[in-house]
């Protein structure tokens, strides 16, 4: 087991299997089809993301460098949370970007009954170490354990 220390963007504790991308995560491209057409697994629809395309995201610990793309990204993430179709948590190796931060904050302030912990600045080593399927536990204070 390896432990990483990050910064809490939105709080919460959760344990979930990892899905990992080392490429920018395009939130709109990843979620749009799955949310619109009721994909229960919420499979990633971003054709440009070679790591995630076609993989289920719901209930997973989404490990990524940053999000990219359309500025609808934040509200798409907010909708995913409001519809209970969100990843279990989002774990960023670097500093969070403005769209992901907006989505995390909007969900935290405006959605009742959903917790999606978001931690950033976990370091490049985190993304190099974590692999799909590894069990991840997000603890208080931005501590992330990878089994």
């Amino acid at each position: 087991m390896k432990q990483f220390q990050g910064r809490v963007i939105t709080p919460g504790q959760v344990s979930a299997p990892a899905v990992v991308t080392t490429e920018g995560f395009n939130t709109l491209a990843s979620f749009q089809m799955a949310l619109q057409f009721g994909d229960k697994e919420v499979k990633c629809g971003d054709q440009n993301n070679r790591d995630l395309f076609g993989k289920p995201m719901i209930g997973k610990a989404l490990c990524l460098p940053q999000t990219i793309g359309s500025t609808t990204g934040g509200l798409v993430l907010y909708c995913a949370c409001a519809m209970h179709k969100n990843p279990a948590c989002m774990l960023f190796s670097g500093p969070i970007d403005s769209l992901a931060a907006a989505g995390a904050v909007l969900a935290d302030v405006w959605v009742d009954g959903v917790t999606m912990p978001v931690v950033d600045s976990l370091g490049d080593e985190f993304l190099a170490y974590v692999k799909d399927g590894m069990q991840i536990t997000v603890k208080e204070g931005g501590i992330v354990e990878v089994e």
Partner: peptide, 26 residues
């Protein structure tokens, strides 16, 4: 503002100042 293409244009070509805000934050 939001809309990624408009934000990057406003910042770069017009010299205005705007972050890449998400929808709703806008």
């Amino acid at each position: 503002w939001a809309e990624s293409s408009a934000v990057v244009y406003a910042n770069s070509v017009l010299g205005a100042r705007c972050n890449r805000n998400s929808g709703i934050i806008d």
